[in-house]
Design a protein around this nucleic acid. Structure first.
Lengths: 256, 256
DNA sequence: AGGCGATTTCCGCATTGTGGAAAATTTTTG
DNA sequence: CAAAAATTTTCCACAATGCGGAAATCGCCT
């Protein structure tokens, strides 16, 4: 009627209900939900009943409120397990590459190391090459430090307590105190810098991507040769990576 | 036709597609998905298109495969954020209480401490009382130790490295070595025991609840007075809590 | 180029979902 | 504690909506 959408009406409505429920942490009552979604009460009730049979929503008998159900959780978890955010990240990585003219990377933390899942290469002739799939200890990586900085202090202390510091280059962090200062700096400006701390001649600027719960899901970074990555270009790359990580976070959480 | 379900057909079918996609980590092609779900190709395509418009699935242009999308992730994340697993856990906690005649608890780890989210009290006259909402350091809690034991060794070492050991009772763990032995034991038998390590006269048996990705989501425990919790009853409670935690894990991941 | 499997679009039909209104239930109020 | 108000649940007749067969299109391999 209103919208010339080519979709299945009842499915669209059901999905809309799920999104409304996800947005209200206290759950919603039937009539409120119907009003919010712009549907009649009876239609809303029928759709909710269907969703409930499949476990995608759950009606709390006591408070008469509807909540997101276990099946929605089980399905959503597959998104991370399957690494389905890698392909959608590519447009952001491309924009990051184009904004900085350096290689753009996407990485996650797994078992105490940073894995670069994918990258979009710089078009420069001389470019840093560290192919996707590689593993790097957290503190030697801009992405690792950016994610680390989102943890609470307790977890960070626990991590630093047993981290095996190594002097890979003259610029490497070699003590917990230096790491703490670094983390404070990252929190202040929003992005992390790897200033030739892992490989001499390579600089890296990274920012974290947050999921819908505010949890660090992954990180974006820009890596380039130190000769090109001057202080002013590092700052410029910081703004770019911060902006695009923010956009990608928003996309992950549901907003375009 | 086949099923006398009172639900909305197209919505049920769409949810079924989501669940099939979540189960196949490599994604699925249209025709395979249609076959798996028992639908015609054209119907499947129409439903997928609708789901895609809302971002609940994503079609990878290159490989021609469909995957779970970001919106499903965003909605599913609300399940954990809203703590929607607390109410559904109650039936399991009740069964646990009835099987052991002791108080049954549900807890999570947050900021390095265990929070008891809810409990079902023992019917015994003399019962241990530690009301929901309380926070206890991880290593003093059966639930905390059970969750800790699921972490990888690296993370455990990091944790133990800065843990502030305190001798709360003569039975408390007071050194990393003892904690490591304890974790090995927990992994071997599947459940954790707090043997008067936090409060004298109180024993606790706990097992972890795993989410769809195999991640520790929360833990179940049984707590009772040491005078009643004899070694044989501890072993019995261990079997009960292990079984029910497993059932609850299965429920969380989609199977009843 | 050509053929084949898979995907996408189209369309007439009746199955299916819709929303008003009534019945049942719960909550609030007098 | 009874009556009223508000909300949830069930029911039903109608036609709008979703269905699936088939045709058109696309993409890939030989």
């Amino acid at each position: 009627m209103e919208k010339p959408a080519g979709g299945v009406q009842s499915v669209e409505r059901a999905l809309s209900l799920l999104e409304h429920l996800a947005a209200q942490d206290e759950g919603m009552r039937l009539s409120d939900l119907a009003h919010a979604a712009g549907l009649t009460v009876s239609t809303t009730h029928r759709l909710l009943t269907t969703l409930e049979q499949r476990g995608f929503v759950h009606a709390d008998a006591g408070s008469r409120r509807w909540h997101v159900g276990r099946s929605a959780f089980a399905v959503g978890a597959a998104f991370i397990r399957q690494r389905n955010f890698v392909a959608p990240a590519l447009p952001y990585l491309r924009r990051l590459r184009d904004a900085t003219r350096e290689t753009a990377n996407l990485g996650i933390i797994e078992d105490g190391e940073v894995i670069t899942l994918t990258q979009v290469e710089s078009r420069e002739i001389t470019r840093a090459i560290s192919p996707p799939g590689g593993r790097v200890p957290v503190l030697y990586s801009g992405m690792g430090k950016a994610i680390l900085a989102t943890w609470d202090d307790r977890a960070i202390e626990a991590f630093l307590g047993t981290y095996h510091f190594q002097r890979k280059t003259p610029h490497s962090l070699t003590a917990p105190a230096a790491a703490r200062r670094e983390i404070a700096l990252i929190r202040e400006r929003g992005y992390a810098v790897d200033d030739e701390e892992f490989v001499l001649g390579l600089r890296c600027v990274a920012a974290v991507v947050l999921g819908p719960q505010g949890e660090a899901t992954c990180a974006l970074s820009v890596s380039g040769l130190a000769v090109r990555m001057t202080p002013s270009r590092v700052a410029e790359a910081g703004r770019a990576v911060l902006g695009l990580a923010g956009e990608f976070s928003g996309w992950l959480s549901g907003r375009p």
